[in-house]
Amino acid sequence: MISLKKYSHIAQFQSLIALFFLCMALALMTDNFMTTDNFWNVMRQISVNVCISVGMTLVILTAGIDLSVGSILAFCGAVTAGLLKYGIEIPSANLYIGFTVLGVVLAGLLAGGAMGFINGYAITRFKVPAFVATLAMLTMARGFTMLWTEGHPITGLGDEFGFLGTGWFLGMPMPVWISGIVVIAAVILTTKTRFGRYIYAIGGNENAARLSGIPINKIKVWVYVLAGMLAAIGGLLVTARLDSAQPNAGMSYELDAIAAVVIGGTSLAGGRGTILGTVLGAMIIGVLNNGLVLLDVSPFWQQVIKGIVILLAVIIDKSNSKSE
């Protein structure tokens, strides 16, 4: 007899062991994996994926999927950079609105939330399958990004904004602070609030949840809004680190996020999984990427190896839930 809590611990335990052996192997095989510099390097690199993956976990827990997060990331990054650099100019009214860093951050979050809302509204109100609705948003958001940037990067955003991506605070890089706060908030949200309990209930059995009086549509819309906002945070981090909003930023990031969620033991059928599992999943992918680069493995082989890891993770997870 294995209970949910206990079982999810086991799932995380496996990821943890996998991560441990991965790190051990890399420490033995390379000279500079086990250095403080490289540690923070890896942590900073995964922080974007962690933010997106946390949102993806919420969506997948409700038995949904969000393919649009990579494009939303690019759009929000571009909006943020554009507003910061150029502000809003309305020549006919002879009006110019400038933005502070805080202002553009809020604007970026708002843009991400709005796009997530459109996803959620299409899915709940018009019953568009999540796969299709967010696929449409993937294309649309990328198109809006191109329109906004006219296809060119927006660069030169200033040190204050750049601090979010490259700065250090109390001995830790800013992106790690931000993704850390996101993770802690998400853990509390999923384990300690009604909202979180409802997410699991909807993914576990939507009929039973509806008949128990859970506002299914409202919860789902909010989940997609959160996924959009977390993608926006990812966009801020990417833009701030590069000091540039690239129109083709975040390409196929949604796939890395889904990979992290799946490696972390969350079921694509919904109702089962944890935020911490996803964080471990993102770390495994990040360490693997880093290690393969340090080992000088060709980028083509890197992709093959990453694919194999995803497949193995799910096969191991499946065989566990069968023996339950």
């Binding site: 699991y200 209930a201 576990g204 009929n207 008949l211 109702g271 089962r272």
Partner: peptide, 9 residues
């Protein structure tokens, strides 16, 4: 189908 959430405690 409608009564329980099977994967929950």
């Amino acid at each position: 189908k409608d009564g329980i959430v099977p994967g929950m405690a």
